[in-house]
């Protein structure tokens, strides 16, 4: 019984939250890694792209709510999501036309593109602030729990409750669908394969008659989808605040680098590595250990390796370890 109680506690506070957080990071990292693979720079505007997509989705969600449209037990935001993606797609393709294309034609060094993306980040950040301000926004509606802690206790008779929030399950389900569609697209369709070819060997792709502008445009559209989905899921699961999204850059970059920049499979693995490390290192293990260990060994302190305020330090530490020992990432990334 103690073992089961410990396991339930672990699932409730570590496994479930880390899985949904990992899925959100993976979606974010996929966007970063795709841009890196095709356009060959680290996009500092990615966090703010996520914020933009989420902002539009939130506005539409509020509008739908005011008109009485709802999605039953699911959050209304899911209905607004496609429109958010479309708006973000327009913004990204437009940005590419106005800003990035010029440097691509000039064959500018990657670091110049990184700096340009910093400028884009400023502007997107400004746009988001214009539209929605800087404060916290909560836009989740629909059924809050699939299983609440109390129901779980009544059902199982265990002392510990297990709460399963709709947003957590939704995050994982949506992420699985998105990733499956993305991989089907990259591996099975002509356009998807041409993107991989372009990422692999740009010159040869050009020789083979692959149109670079088309590849780049499709990439931005996919990135718009990934970023908006990641942003909306994160916002539903936690809450939306523009600055938090900017800060998400670090764990997202860490995930992409850990997995190997430019490698989509790596980005997913990296997302979960970072999320699980973050949650396990900052979780206070006292309760779980009290259940699992004999009374004589029960811990006195919280058994928390690091305070939750240091969650960024965890992504950073992982990043440094990978850079020191395996700069191309766990899965083979593009270059050192």
């Amino acid at each position: 019984m103690d073992f089961l109680n410990g396991l339930v506690t672990l699932a409730n506070f570590v496994l479930i939250p880390a899985t949904s957080y990992g899925a959100q990071l993976a979606l974010g990292a996929l966007g970063v890694t795709l841009i890196y693979g095709i356009l060959r720079f680290s996009n500092f505007a990615h966090g703010d792209t996520m914020a933009f997509g989420t902002t539009i989705t939130i506005l539409l969600t509020w509008w739908f709510q005011s008109m009485g449209i709802s999605f039953g037990v699911l959050p209304t935001a899911l209905l607004a999501l496609p429109f958010g993606i479309a708006a973000t797609g327009l913004l990204l393709v437009g940005t590419d036309r106005v800003v990035y294309r010029f440097y691509r034609r000039k064959k500018a060094a990657p670091v110049i593109l990184v700096i340009v993306s910093v400028g884009v980040m400023f502007i997107m950040n400004g746009i988001v602030r214009f539209i929605i301000g800087v404060s916290d926004q909560n836009f989740a509606d629909g059924e809050r729990f699939i299983i609440s802690a109390r129901d779980f206790k009544d059902m199982t008779g265990l002392a510990e409750g297990l709460a399963l929030r709709t947003t957590q399950v939704l995050t994982v389900v949506v992420a699985v669908i998105v990733v499956a569609v993305l991989f089907w697209f990259l591996n099975k369709t002509r356009t998807g394969k041409s993107m991989r070819a372009f990422s692999d060997n740009e010159d040869l792709a050009l020789l083979s008659g692959i149109n670079p502008e088309r590849v780049v445009m499709v990439t931005w559209l996919i990135v718009a989808g990934l970023a908006t989905v990641a942003g909306v899921l994160y916002g539903l699961d936690k809450s939306f605040k523009p600055f938090t999204y900017f800060q998400l850059l670090l764990p997202i970059f860490a995930s992409a680098v850990v997995g190997g920049l430019g490698n989509p499979l790596g980005a997913i693995a990296g997302g979960f590595v970072v999320a699980f490390s973050e949650v396990t290192v900052t979780y206070a293990w006292k309760k779980v250990l009290t259940y699992w260990l004999p009374d004589s060994l029960a811990p006195d302190g919280l058994v928390q390796l690091m305070s939750t305020d240091y969650k960024f330090a965890v992504s950073f530490a992982i990043l440094i370890i990978v850079l020191l020992f395996k700069p191309t990432g766990l899965f083979k990334g593009q270059s050192v």
Partner: peptide, 18 residues
């Protein structure tokens, strides 16, 4: 740099026929 290293042989040929 005359192949697409991360793609399969068959995909390389497909890309040749793009």
């Amino acid at each position: 740099r005359n192949i697409f290293p991360s793609m399969t042989v068959e995909e390389n040929l497909e890309m040749g026929a793009f």
